[in-house]
Design a protein around this nucleic acid. Structure first.
Lengths: 138, 138
DNA sequence: ATATGTGATGTTATGTTATTACATTCTTGC
DNA sequence: GCAAGAATGTAATAACATAACATCACATAT
């Protein structure tokens, strides 16, 4: 049973549909792409997607990629709602694939930097842009 | 003489106007805010702003903040066009202020992470969200 | 069983950010 | 002068996101 299915019980109908679309996708999707995919399931307005995404992000099941204005299903067991400083993404600018990484050393550095300037960290947006291994070698 | 004025010679009229707006601002500005500020100088369409911003970002005089869809004047002597992996921003969610930091330790970690997954890094987007020292204490 | 509160949903309209397409003007080197 | 390339002007449209308000579904207290 996948993480998505395990959490599914708690999701509303719209949330499940959006989660399903993101889980099946092989990369990030924009809200409007999700909307188009879900029209056959009765979706009609962007807000239906955005509202579901808001909750899914809150639950840690979905991440928003700021540099793409897109959303991607969490690739970890779960990110929970409380570790928004600990995750980063490597986004391939050729094939569009996204790898999600969690790294404590990075978190340490980020926290230390924040502390140097007395900045109280609530969330960190870390998105690496470049070429994935596959695209690099092709 | 400020960095902005020093570089000014090489900028076109529209680029100078946009750079001026960003330099005078005490924080990040959206492209449309810049447009409104420059209407009195003859600006009429978003593209005039976006085209100037594109060049200014290329020259390293301006940074784009992905999590705000906004732009901010570079706070360093200059960022050049070639160090797009080495800069990060601390964005206060209360007052909107932005601090620009350059940190080699962070860069090392990011490079090491990228290398772990054989990811070829071309740019890194690192934006810390939280409260600045001033807002924290008030 | 009814009332009421809360969260989710539906719908329309609108606001905000960014780009496409094409015409014109301004430089710069020859 | 004049050709090539950069910058600009303008209109239209695409893409992303939210406001405002009505309705529905369901839990639970009376």
């Amino acid at each position: 049973m996948s993480k998505y299915e395990a959490s599914n019980t708690d999701l509303t109908k719209n949330q499940s549909l959006v989660m399903g679309a993101l889980s099946q996708a092989d990369g990030p999707l924009s809200a409007y792409t999700i909307l188009d995919e879900l029209r056959e399931h009765g979706f009609r307005a962007p807000l239906q997607v955005y509202r579901a995404l808001e909750k899914l992000v809150e639950y840690g099941l979905v991440h928003r990629l700021e540099s793409l204005n897109a959303f991607v299903a969490c690739q970890h067991t779960s990110c929970g709602g409380d570790r928004k400083e600990n995750v980063l993404f490597a986004i391939c600018e050729k094939c569009g694939s996204v790898q999600e990484l969690a790294n404590d050393r990075l978190l340490d550095v980020v926290k230390s930097l924040a502390s140097d300037i007395e900045f109280t960290l609530t969330e960190s947006v870390i998105e690496l842009r470049g070429l994935c291994a596959t695209c690099k070698s092709n």
